[in-house]
Write a protein that binds this DNA or RNA. Structure first.
Length: 433
RNA sequence: GCCCGGGUGGUGUAGCCAGGCUAGCAUAGGGGCCUGUCGAGCCUCUGACUCGGGUUCAAAUCCCGACCCGGGCGCCA
C-alpha cells in the first residue's frame, strides 16, 4: 500500500456511527477519505467533527486499491491537517448545478443563480466545470501562440493607455494621465500598424482591450482579451484569412490534445476545424440573405441575425462552423481599412457558429489615400497625425486581425454567456470582484 | 443609447394577477437517530418579504420613485 498525500477543499462530509467519509476536491480531481473508527488514529477520527464544507485540508495515508464510484481515488488517512476552516453557511455552494442563464437548459434545484455566482466568483470557480473552462482557454491561447512563434511572428506589447481614441464608434474609458486626458485602448490595432511601420514584419499582441459600451448582451463585456496579429508584405486580405484560419485551428487543436478530461466535464465534443475556411463576400451576401427572407438594403452592413443566417447557409453548403465574410461596405468600417473599390472594403470578419469572433483585413498603407479616407470619415486628420505621420516614410502593404479570446472559448464550449468564459467579468453592472 | 423582465431566510424558490388572520417548500446551518455512504434517509430547531413614499381599516401582494440584477436591439471582440 502506497502512502500518499492529498490536499484540497472538503466537498462533502458524511459522519456515520462507525465510519466517516470526506470527499476532497482539488483541481486534479476528487479523492475520498475514509475514516473507520476502529482503524483510524483517534485524532483523525475527531478532527473530522470540526470540519466544515469547503475547508482546506491536507491529509496523508494509505491508498485503497479498490476503485470507488464517482471519485478518482480513495485514501485511509493517518493524518489530517486543517489548513483553513471555512465559515458556514456558504453564500454559494460550488457543488450545485450552475445557472448559466440559458433558458433551454432546465436545471434541477437547488442551483446557484447567475448573479450570485459572480458575486462570489472565487467560490464559484471551485466548481470543476468552471476550472475546466479556463484550462481549455489557456490551451487555446497556448496553441495560437505556439503556431505564431513557429511561423516567425514576434510577440510585442503595445500600450494599453493611449493618448487619443483609436477608433470611432465604440466608447472609451477615460483615465487621468497626470492631469491630461488619456484612454484605455479599444483595440491594439493602430499601434500594431505603427510597429509594422517600425520594420517589424510579423507581430502579435496578446492582451486586454476595453469598451465603455453599456452593452446588455450575453456576448459583450467591457474588458476582454484578444490575440491580435499584424503582418507585412501581404498580397491582399486573403493572406490574412489563411493565417487566421491556421491560428484558430492550432488553438483548438492544442485544446483538444491537452484537455480531454475538461471537455468531458463540460460535456463538449470538440471538433478540429478544417482549413481553409470558406469565404462569403459582399455584395453576394445580400442575395444569400434574401434567400432566407432577410432583406438588407444594398450597400448597408448586416446585423446580428444575419450572422446566424449565414451560419446556417455555410453549414448547409460547406459543412463548417467557421467562415469569413469579406468586402464589407466601406462606410460601415473604420478609416484605416483598405478599399477594394469605392464601395467595398478589404475588411474581413471571422464568424464562428454565428458569432463574430474576429475582425480584420488589409489596412491602407498609402499615406495620401489614408488621409483621404480620414476626411471621408469626417475625422480630423490633425488629431490622427500621431498615427498617419509614419506612413509618409515607407510602410509596406499589411494586414491583420484580432481574435477574441473569450468569444473563442465561449463558442467552442457552447457557453451561453461570455461571462462564463471570463474569470472576473467586467460589465456595466460589475467591477467587483 | 433604446426596450423588456426580475429583486421573499445563507442559497434556490412558492405566494403577487383576484390585498387580510402563524409567508409555504427545498437546500444549507445547529442538535439527535441511522446506513461503506454515493446530490442518502428520518426527527427537531434557527432563519426572509431590497429601500423610500403613496393608496387602504389592512400591503410581500396595488401605485410611484430609488438602488441592484438578468436579458433583447444597436455596436462590436
Amino acid at each position: 500500500m502506497n502512502k500518499v498525500k492529498v490536499h484540497g477543499w472538503v466537498e462533502s462530509i458524511r459522519i456515520l456511527k462507525n465510519v466517516k467519509f470526506l470527499v476532497v476536491r482539488n483541481w486534479n480531481g476528487k479523492v475520498q477519505l475514509t475514516i473507520k473508527k476502529n482503524e483510524a488514529p483517534t485524532e483523525v477520527w475527531k478532527a473530522v467533527d470540526k470540519l466544515t464544507r469547503e475547508s482546506v485540508i491536507e491529509a496523508e495515508g494509505k491508498q485503497v486499491v479498490e476503485k470507488v464510484a464517482r471519485v478518482d481515488a480513495e485514501i485511509k488517512p493517518e493524518k489530517i491537517e486543517i489548513l483553513s476552516l471555512a465559515q458556514t453557511p456558504l453564500p454559494l455552494d460550488p457543488t450545485l448545478p450552475i445557472d448559466t442563464g440559458d433558458p433551454s437548459i432546465e436545471i434541477k434545484e437547488p442551483k446557484t443563480l447567475f448573479s450570485t455566482r459572480f458575486k462570489h466568483r472565487s467560490l464559484d470557480l471551485r466548481n470543476p466545470r468552471n476550472q475546466a473552462i479556463f484550462k481549455i482557454q489557456a490551451a487555446l491561447v497556448e496553441g495560437m501562440e505556439e503556431w505564431l512563434n513557429k511561423n516567425g511572428f514576434l510577440r510585442v506589447f503595445t500600450p494599453l493607455i493611449i493618448g487619443a481614441p483609436s477608433e470611432g464608434g465604440a466608447e472609451v474609458f477615460k483615465v487621468d494621465y497626470f492631469g491630461r486626458e488619456a484612454f484605455l485602448r479599444q483595440d491594439p490595432q493602430l499601434h500594431r500598424q505603427l510597429t509594422i511601420a517600425g520594420g517589424f514584419e510579423k507581430i502579435y499582441d496578446l492582451g486586454t482591450s476595453w469598451r465603455a459600451e453599456k452593452s446588455h448582451t450575453r456576448r459583450h463585456i467591457c474588458e476582454f482579451r484578444s490575440c491580435a496579429v499584424e503582418m507585412a508584405f501581404i498580397k491582399d486580405e486573403m493572406d490574412v484569412e489563411r493565417v487566421e484560419a491556421e491560428i484558430v485551428k492550432a488553438g483548438i487543436k492544442k485544446a483538444v490534445e491537452k484537455c480531454e478530461r475538461e471537455f468531458k466535464i463540460l460535456n463538449v465534443e470538440p471538433e478540429i476545424p478544417k482549413t481553409p475556411f470558406p469565404e462569403l463576400r459582399f455584395p453576394e451576401i445580400y442575395e444569400i440573405l434574401r434567400g432566407y427572407g432577410k432583406k438588407i438594403p444594398y450597400g448597408e452592413n448586416y446585423d446580428e441575425e444575419s450572422e446566424e443566417i449565414l451560419w446556417s447557409y455555410v453549414r448547409e453548403n460547406y459543412d463548417t462552423d467557421f467562415f469569413f465574410v469579406n468586402r464589407f461596405p466601406f462606410k460601415s468600417k473604420p478609416f484605416y481599412v483598405m478599399k477594394a473599390d469605392d464601395t467595398w472594403a478589404r475588411s474581413i470578419d471571422l464568424i464562428y457558429r454565428g458569432l463574430e469572433l474576429s475582425s480584420g483585413g488589409q489596412r491602407e498603407h498609402r499615406y495620401h489615400v489614408l488621409v483621404e479616407q480620414i476626411k471621408e470619415k469626417k475625422l480630423n486628420p490633425k488629431l490622427l497625425e500621431w498615427f498617419t505621420e509614419p506612413f509618409k516614410y515607407g510602410v509596406p502593404p499589411h494586414g491583420g486581425f484580432a481574435v477574441g479570446v473569450e468569444r473563442l472559448t465561449m463558442q467552442l464550449l457552447n457557453l451561453y454567456n461570455i461571462r462564463d468564459a471570463t474569470l472576473y467579468p467586467r460589465d456595466p453592472e460589475r467591477s467587483i470582484p
